[in-house]
Amino acid sequence: MEVIQFDAVGHAYQPGIPVVKDLNLRIEKGEFVTLIGPSGCGKTTILKMVNGLIEPTEGEIHVHGKPLSEWDPIALRRKIGYVIQQIGLFPHLSIADNITYVLDLEGVSKTDQRKRAEELIDLIGLDPSYLDRYPRELSGGQKQRVGVARALANDPEIILMDEPFGAVDEISRRGLQEEIVALHKKLKKTILFVTHDIEEAFRLGSWMILFKDGKIEQQGRREELVFRPATPFVESFFGLKNFVSYLTLTAVEELMDSDSPRLTDHAITVGQSAMDAIKLMFFHRVDCVSVKNEKNELVGNFRLAHAKEQMERPSK
């Protein structure tokens, strides 16, 4: 079922200079979609059209099957989680009050708010003692976790994230990315995630949409965008560096050949990356290594030719 649907949507801040053009998009329930593209490609505008912060100047958007024009924008926004880059935590409110801000708007009782805040702080892996602290006492990574908890407070079906991890350091960002993937698996929310960082998009989304000049350049699984680029722009956008990130981020078992595995001189363990396998092969000058599981049982072989086939197989 589609929870978000764009039909021929366009937006122009100034007449004649559209930032989004003729956009058709269907986002299914429970999907983790990353919107990626160079700055100025319209990805943030697209995100903000979903919760009505920006109105489309052309076309129609349906959210939960209902056209935006029939939604009360306030009611709509309370049903959609929203996380922004600078986090936007309220400096005058405690962490607990920040998390349950939407519930407060809805008039939920203080005791129920407190209960929900306790559940959510636990979910994002912060100590409950943080509930009574203030945003200024938290690190960038912790603030961003609170930002995510705040977006989850009203148990929304859809969560919009606009470059939420852009302002945190590399190490915290990795941790946050892993946590958001885990949260997505656990809560099955529909997530729209805007980023300009290709590696982040690789790490997070099951579905990637690449934008250029307000139009979809290509969408698909990460393998498709890397190995079957539809246009020269897609090819240059993903480039060799991202081929390397792809290999580093892909586990060896995803690309191995599990039919009739055979034992070779060198073995690699499930969970290591395809890049590790290639390094091993390069180092020992072999063209095939065995893949073993945690119990040291043989489960497959990694070979370049087969890996390439796996990468290039079409999706859906």
């Binding site: 903000k48 912060l53 009611a75 705040r150």
Partner: peptide
């Protein structure tokens, strides 16, 4: 923006 986006 955060406050508006959350439905204030």
């Amino acid at each position: 923006e955060a406050a508006i986006g959350m439905g204030s």
